[in-house]
Structure formats: structure tokens, C-alpha cells
Design a binder for these strands. Structure first.
Length: 540
RNA sequence: GCCCCCGUAGCUCAGCUGGAUAGAGCGCCGGCCUUCUAAGCCGGAUGUCGCAGGUUCGAAUCCUGCCGGGGGUGCCA
């Protein structure tokens, strides 16, 4: 993880080494964080407080001892140390340290992220909305989250596949076909059918292409194909990279369901009762056993889904991440149990539960029911406020949190959307770099010797956080942290912009150093936005 | 009944594998464009971190109980 070329890692190494030496314990891992306030130095560590208990000595006393060792370890890079509060050691760094740090980022690639020590092959399944209607704004939240999470996990060094499970079998597809048929003949859809206006459009198209209302089988297949086509388009417009669409029906055609159930039967976890075939998920922590094949002979959704997950494992994935809606959380224990029953922990199953999103319009929450047709679609949302803004709104909060998205606000104040704040910083930098290129030729001098303004140091410090932020977002499955980081980075740049002239700056090496810093900042912002699936415009 | 999410500023929410004076955006009040993009910057006001105990040198953060809001709990998908 750490490398000597990473400036903050070098600081942390020095702190860790001295702390371990004093404690005689290789397990001690002190933290090094940017100081909360300038008077508290540049970085601070809690090392002394962590050692207080094992050593049985007052933290400030330990801190004094550690500080001396740290100063010896770091030499000239360090201006001074101070002991503060309950026992924090604050490190004060010189301008040269920041110039070297910026230069290191410029040479290794600003946004270089060291890979996780144990890289995994991960398949992320998300959206997987029924192909009986267009994607809703709620699906959009799943799409934004799953896509961004995948990008972040990939950036952290994992091998990622993204997949959409198409539920093209089952009763809801029959209802769907019946609804189209009804509209073709001018009737109302059945009670539990689909009533959205898009069904009328499908009915028109079916008629135009010579479908018979009586041929429900064919209507179902074609209708689903049309919807999947539309869903692919919606995701594409939304900037989602979906590697595969996996058909539920193909499970039957490839005989994967029978095979999966057979394997579970061999493992001794399947039993027959009341004419149905059950999986004894209670052996693995579920609160009741689950039906795989109904007494009618039909395979349940669960039965098919288990077979699908088995297939994911057989394709060689170490970890299966399912992004599921809050209404599916009760489903998690049984799938986890099934995976345990079958594979005995060969692969990790992990569910990420999305909480609800409420769209607020005219001060009222809109109900979203696909069957009633009372929906705001993802396409409408994308068209309303743009894919970039939509993705930002959907990603900026934890996926684990119910959110209100005020559509009126998103529309009317789109120019004040936080995403523009970040994009604007990027565009501003590009403008500076264009001007620097036009007036080029004078940007030389010793960059490392150039003095650094406080807002330059703050910006460098923020940029240095990028790899750690990516790893933290990956570990916590939390894209919203990247939103926060991108905003902070933009703010640090805007402050720098206020304080520091770049092109034509006075002083030995200062202009060159600042141009370099601008380049590193632009790259970091661009990469951050890329992790969110948001564009980084050069002009606004 | 059982399970999951949530309760932090007027609003929407970060922070929650414990650390210094609890943050951001929006909204509100007041300033800043002859200078690389004012979609920006600076200053100001606003908090019983739901309540009560416990653990700790230290709790918004961890533990227990309670209150309040939302969701789930099918031989549906």
C-alpha cells in the first residue's frame, strides 16, 4: 500500500516506526490526519494516545518522547513538532515538502491509486428492474450507485464485471403481455396488469408489426425485447457501463436451474413437502425454509435466482455484490443461506441495500408505481436536469439513506447545483492552462525552491488525499464520499485561485510550480468525476 | 411479533472501525469583478447531535433500554 514515493506515506511510516519502537509492538498502527486548523500544524497523529494504555504512562509524556524521535526520523522535511490537547503530536512542514509532494504527484500521475493488497474478481449486479416498463428515477439511483461503485472498486485494483439480471420469465411477464393485448383490442388491462401509457405505445407498435393479441407467448417475448432495448438506451444515456444483460429464461434453456437444484439436493439441503421442493435455508441462518419449485411444478423466482448466482460463481468470481432495493432486504438471508449451502464459502455473497428515494414535485412526494403508470422515468429525469446533475444528486448521499430529491429545485436551480461547482473548478483550470500555453516560455526556474502560499499548501494536502479517499470509498462501498472529496478539492482550488496568480506570478519558480499544481488539480478532479460517471468540461 | 434503515443547523444531509472548538450545500443578512471564467470568493447568525443510562482519559460515534418516522416480513417478483 505504502510506497516511499508517496509523501504522506513517508510521514506515516516515520510515525509508525517510532511508535512501534517505543512500544516494542509491531501491531501498533497510529493514524496520521491533516490537522483541523492551521495553528495545529500540517498533520497530526494520535500515536501517543494509542500508546498511553499499553505503556501505562500519560499520553503527553509519551508524545514528547515520540516527537523527538520523529524529528530525528524526518530530518529537514520537518520544521517543528508540537504537543497539543490530550496528546496529539502536530507536525509542521516546510514549503519545500509541499513542492516536492506536488512534483511527485505530477510525475507519477496525479490520480495514481495503488492497488489493494488482495485484489478480487467481483461481479456487481445492479438495477435488474423487471423488463415490463421503463426505468424509473428510483432505478436511476441504483444505476448511478452500482455503476459508480464498480468504477471505484476497479480503480482500487479489483477486476470488475457489471451485470443486469433480466427477469424475462415468470408471471409478471404474462401480465405484461396480457396488458399489451388488452390495449391492442381497446380494452382496459387486467386488474394486476400494467396501465402506463407506454403500454399503449407498445400495443400500437405490436399492431403495426402484425402481432395478434391472442398470441400472448409472442407478445411477451417481443414486448420484453422492446423494453430491454429501451432500458439499454436509458442506461447508456445515463452513462452507465453495463457489461452484460443476463436472461432469466436462458437459465432454463441452458438447464442451469435443474443443475443447481440437483447440486443442492446432493448436498443434502433440499427436501420435498406438500408437493413442493424446498431448500432448508434455516440450516444457514434464515428464519424459515424456502420453496424452490412450487407444487404446480413452476420454479420460484428464488429458485431461478439461486441458479443464476451459482452461475456467477462458476464464471470465476470471488465476490458477488447484489445492489438491492430496501424492499428486497428480507431476501438477503435466504440468498446468503443458499450460497452457503451450495458453495460453502467459495465465494463471498454481499448485498448492498439501497434505501428509498422520494421525488418531490410541487412540494409533494410522488408515488412511484410501475403498474399504475404513475412514474417519473429515468429518461425524464436525465432530460430534465441532465445526466451529470442527476448522477450527482443521486450519488451525493449515502445509498443507505432515504433521500428526498426535489425535482423543482433540481430544475430551477440547476446552475447552482454542486456538480457545477466542481465542474467549474475544472473549467477554470483549463482556462488558466490555455493561457499559460499561449504565453508560454517563461515558466522555468527551480520549482522545488519556490515559496508556497498557505492556500497552495492546503490544495496540495487535499490532492494528496485522493488515493486514500478512493480506497475508503471502495472499502465502505460509498461513492458519496467521492462527491464530498470532489467538492472539497474544488473548494481548495477556488481558494487558491483567489489568492494566487498563476500566469505571470512573481518569484523564482513560482509560476512553473503553480502551473504544475494546476495540472495536478485538474487531473485529480477529472478522475474524481470519472469515478462518479460525470463529465469534466474544459469550458463552461 | 421479528428484521432492516433513519432521527445532527430553518431545509436536505455529511461525519458514526471513539479524539482537539460537530461540518457542507441550500436558504437568510452584509461585502468583493480595470487583474488567469463572479457557475466564484470573503464575513455574519442558527445546534438539548431523539431521550435515558453504561463503557472510556475522551462518546454524535461503542453497548443496553426507550420514544418517534420509514420500509420489509407470500408456494409474488
Amino acid at each position: 500500500m505504502t510506497s516511499s514515493s508517496d509523501p504522506t506515506a513517508a510521514l506515516l511510516d516515520a510515525v509508525t516506526v517510532t511508535a512501534r519502537r517505543l512500544a516494542g509492538d509491531d501491531g501498533v498502527s497510529p493514524a496520521l490526519d491533516p490537522s483541523p486548523r492551521p495553528e495545529m500544524g500540517d498533520y497530526s497523529t494520535n500515536a501517543a494516545m494509542m500508546l498511553a494504555k499499553p505503556l501505562g504512562r500519560p499520553p503527553r509524556e509519551i508524545a514528547a518522547e515520540l516527537a523527538t524521535s520523529i524529528e530525528e526520523e524526518l530530518g529537514d522535511a520537518l520544521e517543528k513538532t508540537e504537543i497539543a490537547g490530550p496528546g496529539f503530536i502536530n507536525l509542521f512542514l516546510g514549503d519545500a515538502w509541499y513542492r516536492e509532494a506536488a512534483a511527485a504527484m505530477a510525475s507519477t500521475g496525479a490520480a495514481a491509486v495503488p492497488p489493494v493488497p488482495e485484489s478480487e474478481r467481483i461481479i456487481v449486479e445492479f438495477v435488474s428492474a423487471n423488463p415490463t416498463g421503463p426505468l424509473t428515477a428510483a432505478s436511476g439511483r441504483h444505476a448511478a450507485y452500482g455503476d459508480s461503485l464498480s468504477r471505484i472498486l476497479r480503480a482500487a485494483g479489483n477486476a470488475i464485471t457489471t451485470e443486469y439480471y433480466v427477469n424475462d420469465g415468470g408471471t409478471q411477464v404474462e401480465n405484461f403481455a396480457a396488458s399489451i393485448a388488452a390495449r391492442m383490442t381497446g380494452d382496459e388491462p387486467p386488474e394486476d396488469g400494467y396501465k402506463g401509457t407506454y403500454v399503449n405505445e407498445l400495443a400500437e407498435r405490436a399492431k403495426a408489426e402484425g402481432h395478434e393479441p391472442a398470441d400472448l407467448e409472442r407478445l411477451a417475448r417481443t414486448g420484453v425485447a422492446w423494453m430491454v432495448e429501451g432500458i439499454r438506451g436509458s442506461l447508456e444515456n445515463f452513462g452507465v457501463e453495463m457489461d452484460d444483460f443476463f436472461s432469466e429464461r436462458s437459465l432454463y434453456e441452458d438447464n442451469l436451474v435443474d443443475r443447481g437444484i440437483e447440486r443442492m439436493r446432493e448436498a443434502g439441503h433440499v427436501f420435498d413437502d406438500d408437493g413442493a421442493v424446498w431448500l432448508r435455508t434455516t440450516d444457514f441462518g434464515d428464519d424459515k425454509d424456502r420453496v424452490l419449485i412450487r407444487s404446480s411444478g413452476e420454479v420460484t423466482y428464488f429458485g431461478a435466482d439461486v441458479a443464476y448466482h451459482v452461475d456467477k460463481i462458476e464464471r470465476g468470481h470471488d465476490r458477488l455484490i447484489d445492489v438491492l432495493g430496501a424492499d428486497h432486504h428480507g431476501y438477503v438471508p435466504r440468498m446468503a443461506a443458499a450460497m452457503e449451502a451450495l458453495e460453502g464459502g467459495k465465494a463471498e455473497f454481499e448485498a448492498q441495500i439501497m434505501q428509498l428515494i422520494h421525488l418531490v414535485e410541487g412540494g409533494q412526494r410522488t408515488k412511484m408505481s410501475k403498474r399504475a403508470g404513475d412514474i417519473v422515468t429515468l429518461d425524464e429525469l436525465t432530460e430534465d436536469i441532465g445526466a451529470d446533475a442527476a448522477r450527482w444528486f443521486l450519488l451525493q448521499r449515502s445509498h443507505n439513506q432515504t433521500i428526498d430529491l426535489d425535482l423543482d429545485l433540481a430544475r430551477s436551480q440547476s446552475s447552482e447545483n454542486p456538480v457545477y461547482y466542481v465542474q467549474y473548478a475544472h473549467a477554470r483550470i483549463q482556462s488558466i492552462l490555455r493561457k499559460a500555453a499561449e504565453e508560454g516560455g517563461e515558466a522555468d526556474g527551480d520549482i522545488l525552491a519556490a515559496p508556497a502560499d498557505p492556500s497552495e499548501k492546503a490544495l496540495v494536502s487535499k490532492l494528496l488525499e485522493f488515493p486514500g479517499q478512493v480506497h475508503e470509498a471502495a472499502e465502505k462501498r460509498a461513492p458519496h464520499r467521492i462527491c464530498a472529496y470532489a467538492s472539497e478539492t474544488a473548494a481548495a482550488f477556488h481558494a487558491f485561485y483567489r489568492d494566487c496568480q498563476v500566469v505571470g506570478a512573481e518569484g523564482e519558480g513560482v509560476e512553473a510550480a503553480r502551473i504544475q499544481l494546476c495540472g495536478v488539480t485538474a487531473e485529480t478532479i477529472r478522475q474524481s468525476l470519472a469515478l462518479l460517471g460525470i463529465s469534466a468540461p474544459d469550458r463552461m
